[in-house]
Amino acid sequence: MTAKVRFYPAPLLRTLVAIACAFLLTRWSSLAVLALPWQPEQSVVAGMLLGFSVFAATVIWVFVAGSLRIACLGILPAGAFLMYFSQQGAL
């Protein structure tokens, strides 16, 4: 039995979504760490170190997900969580 090869018609759209989501999640995650009860200097450095992993993980997730809709559904709760805490961190 041979595996059915699927054709993905919109790699450009997926790429754009991946970059936009990765950028936003990275930004929010670096700000969300400021909400942790640490010294600000520590949170800033920790947020930067975390940021690259968040960026890479988001792009990989968008390409791993079976469809763009599933990818966005996965990102939505993470985005909401990070956005909420990024606003807490900004206070």
């Binding site: 200097e41 800033v44 947020g47 930067m48 170190l49 690259f52």
Partner: peptide, 18 residues
Amino acid sequence: GLVTLMMLYIPWGLNQAF
């Protein structure tokens, strides 16, 4: 390598806190 220039690439936390 990314970490070496992280203050340039991920500046938001730094600018927010300081």
